[in-house]
């Protein structure tokens, strides 16, 4: 499974819709729609800059839901990726209801620990949305188990200790982490952080159920718009589905 991230509203709301639809058309299985936030402390410079452009352009939580709706209308699937404060401010129940109405399937929360997630998990359960949590190479086994118990859809395995951004090599910690997760849960595991090429995607697909690509799509959007994003999606999709598998 290929999962591609782009922030809603980058470079504009309309254009961000065009970009994610191109991703779907070129083989991305699930779109991770980023909710632009003023203090993205898990993101590297590429996504920081993109999010800043989106916010300056007036992107809001409603814009994110608009992008989700457009993806659904196009026949695609999406989850939202958001830091916690905008969701809490919007209202957890209100957000959950609107996500369901727009056809979104889940929410990735990179700064929400399971200990603080009670109200969100309750709402997600009621509305059949997937709460998607992250595990990291530093997570203990008992913590991975606890996180897996609260997660639905898939587990997001952060491939390395660090922030988002493309890297020449995907960390060697990733296979070990995925292996540990597999011992502890039946949930599908997707690997993210640092993936940018078809070759990397192919390598990860040999041991993980999903490959998550973010910064590389933002760079492609910046460099060549819809065409470049489509091209990257095609390359990654081929990697994910390569016969190496």
């Amino acid at each position: 499974m290929l999962i591609g991230y782009l922030p809603a509203g980058y470079p504009t709301i309309e254009k961000s819709i065009g970009l994610v639809l191109a991703m779907i058309d070129h083989g991305v299985d699930l779109i991770e729609v980023g909710l632009p936030y003023s203090d993205p402390l898990m993101d590297g410079p590429v996504i920081q800059d993109a999010v800043s452009v989106a916010l300056s352009g007036g992107a809001t939580t409603d814009s994110v839901l608009e992008v989700v709706g457009a993806i659904t209308d196009h026949g695609g699937s999406s989850v939202v990726m958001s830091y916690w404060n905008p969701i809490e401010r919007y209202g957890v129940t209100r957000f959950t209801e609107n996500m369901v109405a727009r056809g979104g399937s889940g929410l990735i929360t990179p700064d929400l620990t399971i200990e603080e997630a009670g109200p969100w998990i309750t709402a997600a359960t009621e509305f059949h949305l997937d709460p998607i949590f992250l595990v990291a190479p530093s997570s203990t086994d008992s913590r991975i188990s606890a996180i897996a118990q609260q997660t639905r859809g898939f587990i997001y395995a952060a491939s390395t200790m660090g922030v988002t951004g493309t890297r020449d090599q995907v960390s060697s910690m990733a296979p070990q982490l995925v292996e540990r997760v597999r011992q502890l849960t039946e949930l599908p595991v997707a690997v993210g952080l640092g993936v940018s090429s078809g070759a990397q995607a192919a390598a990860i697909s040999q041991y993980a159920d999903g490959v998550i690509v973010g910064s590389a799509f933002v760079r492609a959007a910046l460099a060549g718009g819809v065409a470049a994003v489509g091209e990257l999606a095609a390359e990654l999709a081929q990697g994910v589905r390569s016969p190496l598998r």
Partner: peptide, 12 residues
């Protein structure tokens, strides 16, 4: 209060 951080920091 509480903890609203990336999972990577939880063990630290």
């Amino acid at each position: 209060g509480g903890r609203f951080v990336p999972e990577a920091l939880t063990s630290a």
